[in-house]
Each structure stands twice: as C-alpha cells, then as structure tokens.
C-alpha cells in the first residue's frame, strides 16, 4: 500500500500557521498524504488538528511553509480554487442544507462541474457507494439522522471526484452503530481511489481504519507511522488513546 510510495497527493511542508496576531498554532509541521491512503491525525485538544485541515483546504493561509496538491504549489490558492483542483473538505458538525432534499444537497457538491453527463455519472457513483443517499433522495436532508446526514456530506464531497477529502471529526455526535458505518464508508472512499486526511477525537477507532497515523502535539508531528504500529505503542496508548490497549 503505502510502501510502494506513489507520489504524494497532498503535502504540507514545514507549515507555520496561526490565527490573527496570536501565537502560532502550527510550528513547522510536515504531513504527506499518499494516493489511496487514509492518514489520520490524532492528538490532544489544541494540538492544531483542525488548523491543519484549514490550512490544507485554503480556509487559513499559512505564515510559512508550502502546501502542494498533486505536485502543484497551492499555498496561495483559496478554497474554491483548491476545490476545483480536486480537494474537498467535509466540515465538523452538520453541514447539510436541512431544507433542501438529499438529492439537491448531493448535486450541490458538483456545482463547479458544468457537464451534466459527468454529474449524472457521479450521482450514480455516490448512490451506489451510499445506499442511504439513493433511498432518501427526495427527502429533506434535515429529516435524516446524524449518521445519515454525515453520509450525505460524504457523498456531496465525492461529487467533484476529488483526489483528496479532508474529514473533520466525522464521528462527532454519532452513536456507535452510526460511527461504525461512517468509518466503513471512509474505507470505501479510500478503496475507490480517494486519499483521505482525517481528524478524529475517537483516536483509537480512527487508527483502526487509517493506514498512516500522525500524532500531533504543540503544532508539530510528534510521531508518525503505520497506524497499526501506533495502536500497539504502549506510550502512545497511555498518553493519547486513553488507557491500555484492549485485549
């Protein structure tokens, strides 16, 4: 998988970033996301996990460092340009349009795609990937459960056929069954060729799904490596995963 080391799709190179005039949140952070890989960021609150995603999607411009998408320098590009270049960002919490139907929500994801035939193909693709999307196509998105809404958001982000999807806390507020479904869907996104950069509070569950884990602390990558190895690391388990490794 990652050992073949294909060219990295998303590279954050020595990023320094912060908000306003306050102290830096990210201090020389470097993260790479290879093709068809799930990279998971874990770390304590305030480590800068969400800030990494904001820098990656262009919502926050870094004070130093370079962001590269598929080899191109996009550091100065805004969110819309990066969206067109194939980078989708699924925000924290619920970001569906509740008063619009599931279908409208999903099709909005392809707003920047002018070709109708392409859109129709993508609709079929995400309907196949997310059964709930095709089942509830005409239902107002606000009527769905939290887990279903999350899947609609995933489907919407896949409409542009993205190279990379950024997921910010996808399991937030979901019950265990819905969380399991959401993580299955994330694996399925990876299996269809999309790279995923995932930020998750539920670190243990996220590392079970991810290929590569990065532990963030104080705005730097404290430790990174294959996710299963991180899961087995006793120090990491004690510090960041809330106790001993089960079993």
């Amino acid at each position: 998988m990652a050992s073949e080391s294909p060219p990295n799709l998303l590279e954050l190179d020595r990023i320094e970033a912060g908000y306003g005039h306050a102290a830096l949140v990210l201090r020389g952070l470097t993260i790479t996301v290879p093709r068809s890989t799930i990279v998971c960021l874990v770390g304590p609150n305030g480590a800068g996990k969400s800030t990494v995603l904001k820098v990656a999607s262009g919502m926050l411009h870094p004070r130093g460092g370079t962001v590269r998408l598929d080899g191109h320098d996009v550091t100065r590009h805004g969110p819309q340009q990066r969206l067109r270049a194939g980078l989708a960002h699924v925000l924290q919490g619920h970001s569906v349009f509740p008063e619009m139907t599931v279908g409208e929500n999903v099709r909005l994801g392809a707003y920047t795609v002018p070709d109708r035939a392409t859109v129709a193909t993508r609709v079929q693709f995400v309907q196949h990937l997310f059964p709930v999307v095709s089942e509830q196509w005409d239902v107002l998105a606000g009527l769905l459960s939290g887990g279903q809404q999350k899947q609609v958001e995933f489907a919407r982000s896949l409409m542009i056929d993205p190279k990379v999807v950024l997921l910010d806390e996808p399991s937030m507020g979901l019950d265990p069954k819905a969380t399991a479904t959401v993580f299955e869907q994330i694996e399925r996104m990876r299996d269809t060729g999309t790279a995923v950069l995932l930020v998750e509070q539920n670190a243990r569950r996220a590392l079970q799904t991810a290929d590569i884990g990065c532990v963030l602390d104080l705005g730097r990558v404290h430790m990174s490596g294959p996710a299963p190895e991180l899961l087995d690391d006793p120090e990491l388990s004690q510090l960041y995963l809330g106790g001993h490794v089960a079993g």
Binding site: P79, L91, F97, P98, M100, E104, R107, L108, Y111, T112
Partner: peptide, 18 residues
C-alpha cells in the same frame, strides 16, 4: 440550486463553489 443554498447558508454555499 445554488441560490437556494445561499438562502439556507451563504457561507456553506460559497465553500461548495457557488
């Protein structure tokens, strides 16, 4: 569809490229 997205949440609509 883009306009209706604006009606619901203008910032989200812009984030989707509207």
């Amino acid at each position: 569809m883009g306009l209706k997205a604006i009606r619901e949440d203008e910032d989200k609509a812009r984030a989707l490229g509207v």
